[in-house]
């Protein structure tokens, strides 16, 4: 069973649909005991990273998530809160699983912020990205990015910056893009996550 963490950060319907299409059983929950006993945990998230951390704290989920030993997948803002900090939430600490900080894209004359649409991955390594074509396309919507670090297992480039598209530390994984909205490539990632 997969626990999808519900902490008031955006709509979960498309993620539920995507996991449903893969035939996976899931439960949308904020119950620590359900999260700790799940085979897989997904931490989604759309919106403000500071609010995301606050919502996790209010629900007493920060230490719960840190103590999960089964595979965890953070998506978009769900990935960003697993980093050390974010420029979107000055002075606030993230969960600090991934050894990197989240910064805002600079607006340039040719690149608008947010980075929105389909972009390609490079420098891919590890099981989560198994079986994908070279430089696969994924759907991104974000104004902040995680800098590359030792936990980076795939990169993407926008506005002249190469950033972390996928992060991994031990049993924790994070994707900046939305696998649930990324067509066949996204489905392949979710399937890999279920089979880790």
């Amino acid at each position: 069973m997969i626990a999808i963490i519900d902490y008031g950060m955006g709509n979960l319907r498309s993620l539920e649909n995507a996991l449903g299409r893969l035939g996976a059983e899931f439960e949308v929950t904020s119950d620590p005991s359900v999260i700790l006993s799940a085979d897989r945990v997904v931490l989604p998230g759309v919106g403000n990273a500071g609010k995301a951390v606050d919502n996790l704290q209010e629900r007493g989920l920060v230490d719960v998530i840190k103590s999960v030993r089964r595979p965890v997948l953070g998506i978009c803002v769900g990935m960003q809160v697993l980093c050390l900090s974010s420029e979107e939430a000055p002075g606030k600490e993230g969960l600090g699983i991934f050894d990197t900080r989240v910064r805002r894209f600079p607006a340039t004359s040719s690149d608008k912020v947010p980075h929105m649409g389909w972009n390609t991955l490079s420098n891919m390594e590890g099981k989560l990205l198994n079986g994908l074509p070279q430089n696969p396309w994924f759907y991104f919507v974000h104004s902040y990015y995680a800098s590359t670090c030792t936990d980076t297992v795939a990169t993407c480039s926008y506005a002249g910056i190469m950033f972390s598209a996928v992060l991994r530390y031990e049993n924790f994984y994070g994707t900046q893009f939305h696998p649930e909205k990324s067509g066949d490539a996204g489905e392949a990632i979710l399937k890999n996550f279920l089979e880790l």
Binding site: R21, Y139, K181
Partner: peptide, 8 residues
């Protein structure tokens, strides 16, 4: 539509 479409 949401049940079957896997793109935005």
């Amino acid at each position: 539509i949401a049940d079957v479409i896997n793109i935005p």
